[in-house]
Design a protein around this nucleic acid. Sequence first.
DNA 1: TATAAAAGTTAGACTAGTCTAACAAATTTA
DNA 2: TAAATTTGTTAGACTAGTCTAACTTTTATA
Lengths: 236, 236
Amino acid sequence: MLSFTEENYLKALLQITMESGEKSAAGTNELAFNLSVKPATATDMLKKLKDKKFVDYKKYGKISLTSTGRKHAIEIVRKHRLWETFLFKKLAFTWDEVHEVAEQLEHIQSQKLIDKLDEFLDFPEFDPHGDIIPNAKGEIKNSFKKTLAEVDAGKSCKMVAVKDNSVSFLQYVVKVGLGINNKIKVVSRERYDSLLSIEVNGIVSSVSQKFAQNILVVCGHCELGKACSKTKCEIK
Amino acid sequence: MLSFTEENYLKALLQITMESGEKSAAGTNELAFNLSVKPATATDMLKKLKDKKFVDYKKYGKISLTSTGRKHAIEIVRKHRLWETFLFKKLAFTWDEVHEVAEQLEHIQSQKLIDKLDEFLDFPEFDPHGDIIPNAKGEIKNSFKKTLAEVDAGKSCKMVAVKDNSVSFLQYVVKVGLGINNKIKVVSRERYDSLLSIEVNGIVSSVSQKFAQNILVVCGHCELGKACSKTKCEIK
DNA sequence: TATAAAAGTTAGACTAGTCTAACAAATTTA
DNA sequence: TAAATTTGTTAGACTAGTCTAACTTTTATA
């Protein structure tokens, strides 16, 4: 049985190795920052997780999850996203409120609870932020997402998820008038600082490069979770 | 903010002081046993809870909750019973499965979660074991319950709750053919060992004194949570 | 009421998870 | 490539919660 803390380390490692474009390895500082602990603390825990065969790691080397570690981490992400979906759909929580509570709920130990919750929610594929919920087998479908920052000027796309789940970011997203499934047209991109001019529901606004990097989009033709054919896709 | 452990101590103290007929005080051994720790451990924690003004306690003296401590404890019981109700009603858990998972869920920190859950369940008054759910103000209605062991031979009553929430006890209850709201007739009571002969749905079986002490009942006329008038009540 | 039994406390030790400060290795850069 | 910077590790300390063993106080009983 894993402790809350161990679960959080595995989850953080999965997140880091998934985000950093398939390099599948993380560093101690990065991990420590992600978990809001000091690097020394992360080193200690890494030794422990190595002994338990959840991570591959040697002194001063890169860190990666073993297949067992990865399986556990995916299970935690699955629980997190199912709980977010429950809070949003059944208890009328708002988009920006669900994450914090799900951080607690994801550690509840009961296989039956998760199976039943999944069923109760009618086996959802995406959480309220548009992120894919791993299925009961631990499989994660590829969603072929890009960030808004990568879309060329003149092209249109559809917002499907966010990369930053902080309350401040999510509230800013709402303020700009954006939400899941909104169609976004990239009107222009400033050469100097990459400031984007975007059009949402007929309203044009400016967003920073940093903001755009945290908005995930698919081509306007794409079904969520499926890639367009190459010939049709607007943003590939 | 209270830790999981502190919450469990407060909950155990509430349970002990409520059960032991309004004496409103507990002992170190009793508390330690209830929490499956050693008495020395309980003593340490009591000092801490005293410093935090959650319990009234002095060396070698009786232990009781302060009003703040009691308020916290009731809130935890409220959460526990709301989660049990959720698991039972919405996720089709059985009677004997809910307790264990609710022991974990009761520690989730989010006022909004509990308020919304309460609303989602349509403000239930009783949990799946028939126990009263404290309301949002922390009020607990008196349910005028007796144990089956106290019912006179010849009288009938209605099962409303159990005192023992262990899986083994609950499974035995089911095996005997009993459940919430079942009518029970006490056919006879053996003088020598208080073995009870009871009739449920036309079937007569024998149950021990120990078993009967863990089945809570009201008079057959009683509404759950309300007392009969004295003149009508069958078991008073 | 003196003594035995029960109940409760203290002291010292251990684990998990965290920290700071000092140090070592790896990487970047001048 | 040597120095500077960044990254990562070690050593030692702290807290929360737990334990065992020895001791003290209270309560029950002979």
